[in-house]
C-alpha cells in the first residue's frame, strides 16, 4: 500500500494515542495534521480509519498499518543516531524524513543490521517485525558486543568497532580478529576472555568494542 507522507504521520499519531496511551480513538485536533488535509480522505478511502465527531478510529487493517509505520519511524531514529551519529533535534527531524524510505524490505534490512532493536533512542518500544520474531525463534542473537555474552559462552568474533586505532591495535595483538573463536571466562569485576591458549583481562570500555556472533550450543 502506498500512502502519502501525511497519511503516515496521521497513522503514527493515532497509533500512539490509541495503542500506547490506551485511548479508544485519537482526537483529530491533536493529531497535528490539519483536519482539512486530503490525507484523511485517503485513509478513509483505503478503509484504514473511520472519522466520527472529530475523532479518528482504527479499522483492524489501519491498526496494523499504524504499527508498521511507527516501527519504521523508530528504526529510522535508531539508524540515524546509532549509526550515522545524527542526534538531537536534527536527528528527530531527519528521522521523520527518513522513515518514509524504509519500505519494501528496506526496513527488514535495517532491522537486521541494527540487530532487531527493541526500543527507540527515546526509550519507546519498537513494535516487533516478522524479522524480529524469526530471529527470536531461531535463538540466533546475531552480532552482540562481548559484554552481552554470558560467562562460559563461546562466540566468534565478528568485528571490532572503534575509531581509536590504539584500542584496535591492542585488541588485534591479543588475537581479537574476525573469525577467531572467543570464550568468555568471566564478566565481573573485569572481563576475562580466552582466545586459543591465552587469557586476557579487559575492562568494559574495551569489551564493548568487540562484537561477536554467539555460537549456539547444540
Amino acid at each position: 500500500m502506498k500512502l502519502s507522507e501525511n497519511a503516515e504521520e496521521i497513522l503514527e499519531a493515532m497509533w500512539i494515542a490509541i495503542e500506547e496511551n490506551g485511548g479508544d480513538f485519537a482526537a483529530i485536533q491533536y493529531i497535528g495534521i490539519d483536519s482539512r488535509d486530503p490525507a484523511y480522505a485517503e485513509l478513509v478511502d483505503s478503509a484504514l480509519i473511520e472519522l466520527k465527531d472529530g475523532h479518528a478510529y482504527f479499522f483492524e487493517k489501519g491498526r496494523e498499518e499504524g504499527r508498521q509505520t511507527i516501527r519504521r519511524h523508530r528504526l529510522a531514529e535508531r539508524l540515524l543516531m546509532d549509526v550515522l551519529d545524527i542526534r538531537g533535534e536534527e536527528g528527530d527531524k531527519k528521522a521523520c524524513q527518513f522513515e518514509h524510505l524504509l519500505k519494501e524490505g528496506v526496513d527488514i534490512k535495517v532491522c537486521n543490521m541494527l540487530n532487531h532493536p527493541s526500543t527507540c533512542p527515546h526509550g519507546k518500544q519498537i513494535p516487533m517485525g516478522d524479522c524480529c520474531t524469526e530471529a527470536r525463534k531461531s535463538g540466533n542473537l546475531g552480532v552482540l558486543p562481548l559484554t552481552e555474552l554470558n560467562p562460559k559462552e563461546d562466540g566468534e568474533i565478528a568485528f571490532i568497532q572503534t575509531k581509536d586505532s590504539k584500542i584496535m591495535h591492542k585488541l588485534m595483538s591479543m588475537g581479537v580478529l574476525p573469525g577467531n573463536q572467543i570464550y568468555l571466562v568471566q564478566n565481573f569485576p573485569s572481563y576475562i576472555f580466552r582466545i586459543g591458549y591465552s587469557e586476557f583481562a579487559i575492562d568494559s570500555e574495551m569489551a564493548d568494542k568487540i562484537y561477536v556472533r554467539q555460537l549456539v550450543r547444540q
Binding site: 573485569s190 586476557f200 583481562a201 570500555e205
Partner: peptide, 9 residues
C-alpha cells in the same frame, strides 16, 4: 586521557 585496562593473564 582516561585509562584503559587490559592485561594478559
Amino acid at each position: 586521557d582516561k585509562t584503559m585496562f587490559y592485561m594478559e593473564l
